[in-house]
Structures are given as structure tokens and as C-alpha cells.
């Protein structure tokens, strides 16, 4: 058994989890909404990216257009569906979000068909050898994307006006508003970023598997929920660590834990164990 192989595979998977979960934790950090429909946005990214690639023939162009377009879609989604629910008790937004997720999956099935669709000519399928481990180019791109997008986000949050406004709003919305920060704008940008990241993850998963189906959002979405809780809801750094850790744990678990627990349940076993010891997650903000 090649341990470095398992480790690298796990880290790649962890990067995909990170791209999905960071958006989820951003939304939670700002609005205290468990945004289940995030999974629907992830799937939307996969469909749009795949169809655009097949239409235009350029994966790169389709990727950029999809990420931006789905980002804007996320803003509209927030404005239409979540904004009116902000002053309601938290379970209202949670259930509404579940309803939206179910509806989105069904709309994809009715519009795009229940059967999977694939790239006509999937790019990035050659394999290269990195430090003794053979990897598909697509997987390397996933890692680069996660580093660049999430790293870029961290720089933006620390150095720019809007980033500082965002952080101020997360720590105390009322205080931020009294300092003249436009809350609505911060929230829009928040949803743009979260949805764009989910779309990027969606396209990359679509490419790696070369198949898109209406229900592809389910399993990663549930795991992403476990990840953001492990990371201490709303904590981006904690979410990143939890995502990578889960990727690696699952990778080894597939080989060594298989007789005890289904792979998809590992995340939750880990989660419950952690919460019983640290009810605020591994990395709480306070």
C-alpha cells in the first residue's frame, strides 16, 4: 500500500470539499443561515459549465463565464429567497432552504433530463507524475484553484475596504452599520463569492467524473455541513483545515475502516465525536 498515494488523493478530495464548504461557512458567518440550497448552486455550476464547454469548445472560457454567472445567480437567489426571511426564526430559513434544494434538483431533472450528461471532449485528462504519485491534470488544477481562489479571498478580506467591511459585519453587524457600512452590499458580495466558489467546485467535479446528474449535490453538500460545523461555524480557517482533514481521513478510511462504517458516514462520526468534547467545533471563533 502506497501511503503517499492515499495522502495525495485525500488532499485533492479535501480541496473540493474546501471549495464547497468555504462558501457555506461564509453564508453562515454573515447571516446565520444553514444554506442547504448551496448544493443546488454547486450542481447548477456543473450543468452550466459542462453545457457551455460543449457549446463553445473552450473549457477555460466556459469556466470563467460560469463562475461569474453563477456568482450573480447567487446574489439574485439571496435577494429573492433569503432576504425576506432574515428576521424570522432560524428554522424558517433552514426549512425554506431545504425546500429550495429539493425544487432545484427537480428542475434540473425536468430541464436537463434524469440521465447523466458528459463532456464531448473532456480536457485535462492526461496523467502526470508528481513526486512519485500519478495524478490526472484535472486533479492538479483542483488544487491550484483551491489555493488561488481561497488564498485570494484571504488577501482580499485582509487588505481591501470591502474585505474589512465584510469582517466587521461578521463580528458585529449592528456596530458595522453604525460605522456606515452598507450591510446589503456586503451580503450581496458574500453570496457572489460563495456561489462562485461552489460553481468552480461543481465544474471541476463534473470534469473529474465526466458526468453531471441532477442529484450530484447531495452527498458533498451534507458533508460540507459537517465540515463547517467541525471548523466552528463561520470560521473560514477552521473550515479549510476540517475539509482537508476529512479528505485524508476518508481516503485512508476507504481502505481501513470499510468493514465498520460506510465512507459517507465517517464525516459524521468524526463530527459527533468532536462536538461531544468541544460543543463549539474544533476552531471556535472565541
Amino acid at each position: 500500500m502506497n501511503y503517499s498515494d492515499l495522502l495525495v488523493q485525500g488532499l485533492v478530495e479535501g480541496c473540493i470539499y474546501a471549495l464547497i464548504a468555504v462558501g457555506l461557512t461564509l453564508v453562515y458567518g454573515l447571516l446565520r443561515i444553514l444554506h442547504i440550497a448551496h448544493a443546488g448552486i454547486f450542481t447548477l455550476g456543473a450543468y452550466v459549465g459542462l453545457l457551455l464547454t460543449n457549446e463553445t469548445g473552450s473549457f477555460a472560457a466556459a469556466f470563467v463565464i460560469t463562475v461569474v454567472a453563477v456568482g450573480f445567480f447567487g446574489m439574485a437567489f439571496y435577494r429573492l429567497f433569503y432576504e425576506p426571511l432574515l428576521d424570522k426564526p432560524p428554522h424558517v430559513a433552514l426549512i425554506a432552504s431545504i425546500g429550495l434544494f429539493v425544487a432545484m434538483e427537480e428542475i434540473y431533472r425536468i430541464v436537463f433530463g434524469a440521465t447523466s450528461i458528459s463532456f464531448l471532449a473532456p480536457p485535462l485528462k492526461e496523467t502526470v507524475e508528481v513526486a512519485g504519485v500519478r495524478l490526472e491534470e484535472g486533479r492538479i488544477v483542483v488544487v491550484i484553484l483551491a489555493v488561488v481562489l481561497i488564498g485570494g479571498l484571504a488577501v482580499l478580506a485582509g487588505r481591501t475596504r470591502i474585505g474589512i467591511a465584510w469582517r466587521a459585519t461578521v463580528s458585529d453587524a449592528a456596530m458595522a452599520e453604525s460605522f456606515g457600512i452598507d450591510l446589503a452590499r456586503v451580503r450581496y458580495i458574500n453570496f457572489f463569492v460563495a456561489s462562485a466558489l461552489a460553481a468552480a467546485a461543481g465544474i471541476m467535479v463534473a470534469l473529474l467524473l465526466n458526468q453531471v446528474i441532477p442529484t450530484m449535490g447531495g452527498v458533498p453538500a451534507y458533508k460540507a455541513l459537517a465540515i463547517i460545523v467541525l471548523g466552528g461555524l463561520g470560521n473560514v480557517k477552521g473550515t479549510l483545515i476540517a475539509a482537508l482533514a476529512l479528505g485524508v481521513i476518508e481516503s485512508f478510511g476507504t481502505i481501513y475502516l470499510d468493514d465498520v462504517l460506510d465512507r459517507d458516514a465517517i464525516a459524521f462520526a468524526f463530527l459527533i465525536a468532536v462536538l461531544m468534547i468541544r460543543p463549539q467545533g474544533l476552531f471556535s471563533r472565541r
Partner: peptide, 19 residues
């Protein structure tokens, strides 16, 4: 090897089969 019908990532199994 065993896998579930929800699995789509087989990296770990593939590395093991290679051996």
C-alpha cells in the same frame, strides 16, 4: 474491494489495486 453505489472517487482503491 468494496465500494458503495454512491462512490465516485476511487483514488484509494486504485492505488491499492496498482500494488
Amino acid at each position: 474491494y468494496q465500494y458503495s453505489l454512491r462512490d465516485r472517487q476511487f483514488g484509494p482503491i486504485v492505488s491499492s489495486i496498482k500494488g
